[in-house]
Design a protein around this nucleic acid. Sequence first.
DNA 1: CGTTTCGTTGAAGAGTGTCAAGGCCAGTGG
DNA 2: CCACTGGCCTTGACACTCTTCAACGAAACG
Lengths: 242, 242
Amino acid sequence: MNLANLRVACSNCNLRELCLPVGLSSDEFSRVEQIVATRRRIHRGDSLFRAGDRFDSLYAVRLGFLKSTLMSSDGHDQVTGFHMAGELVGLDGISSDSHTCDVTALEDTEVCVIPYERIEEFAATLPALQNHLRKVMSREIVREHGVMLLLGSMRAEERLAAFLLNLSQRFEARGYSRSEFVLRMTRAEIGSFLGLKLETVSRALSHFAQEHLIEVDQKHVRILDADRLRALLGSSAPKPER
Amino acid sequence: MNLANLRVACSNCNLRELCLPVGLSSDEFSRVEQIVATRRRIHRGDSLFRAGDRFDSLYAVRLGFLKSTLMSSDGHDQVTGFHMAGELVGLDGISSDSHTCDVTALEDTEVCVIPYERIEEFAATLPALQNHLRKVMSREIVREHGVMLLLGSMRAEERLAAFLLNLSQRFEARGYSRSEFVLRMTRAEIGSFLGLKLETVSRALSHFAQEHLIEVDQKHVRILDADRLRALLGSSAPKPER
DNA sequence: CGTTTCGTTGAAGAGTGTCAAGGCCAGTGG
DNA sequence: CCACTGGCCTTGACACTCTTCAACGAAACG
């Protein structure tokens, strides 16, 4: 394997504004690099970790695309999130020293391995990092609040519109086009994440296309009218305030 | 006001096994007490904080019952959680130095105010506390995963069963009866949390009662057959594995 | 004691799920 | 190179769950 040969260097990484070392001085920066010493490649379809695995590292996505899934007692499982470059994965494991969900690569993916104990020790002497870690965790909590809102109070087309706009925004933050991108996940995975069946997702996409809000060709999506998509979000109950 | 007169002492608090100072030595314990210097009372219907408020403290619920709600762009709002004694509230604020949801008392409530900057400084010298804080945050992430599962893949009666069992378990952990308790929230609030309409909640409760799974008298609930309630959870798709 | 909020129940309707058939595409092996 | 296969996607028809609308009763509150 050529993992050991990879020069790991946050300073070379084009994700450094998004990723772990945000807000560190260049000195601190280089010390973080020493902790994040290894990378790991996951082939499409393979898992980074699975529920029940011992937790010992966080992972920063360097390139590729992942999903996390949670299995319920009845064996049915659900997608709880999609992860792209620059995002931190594995925070769920901190609470009980073992992971509570599966994380699977939707395309060939590379992550930076961040040994938790070492980053923990290190953060103890480095308030900026400590602070950043907590913010990342808190942001995850806020993100999940948003998903709860989506699942609890939106209907199918609103959910899908929110989903597309969210993806669009995340791609844009990474320097890709915000209006044209490739869905790395299947319709069934989108549906699972949004609490819908794959047929409903498919129908909603077709309907958007018919309304000229988007163009869809298989996994390729082009957003034609982001404003009208956004307008869909608030429109479920356009009730006059009393 | 008699707030200043209240002797705040974690060591006297019957929640100390649940709350912040878990796993601290008695020495560390007493130092935490000094930080958690004040309490705050919130009357039923009043809010502890609101979305947009500056974040500067976490709150530990000492007694009472709270809900957090999130407002979506269209003015519709949704309950994202209920909080009872021993639980920590306000973690969402860390990410952006301002709160992202409203937290409202459902009955007269008392919380311990934990100034964030001070606990932060303090945790820097106290790994056990640091660790504990991160675990609490991670646990919140895991909890929300569970809610996503509930909202995304369960039907009305399953959701309600899961909700009742969750409450039951939390009451038990606090030394109350696990089979008999009072719902502090309205049907509409339960519905909002579960992604259902209040009528659906009401019907599901009536149906459970009719099946002798529970007894309901207004807000008073008695669980008669927890096992069958639990069995409801996995039963949506009892498909034979192939 | 009136007013308001909250809860229950029924009937009708909308939105999704379910089931089924067929098309498209990539990969595989003849 | 082509047929075959399996996974993924689309579309239609129908069933079902949940919502919506409405009316009424009960409890809580000033």
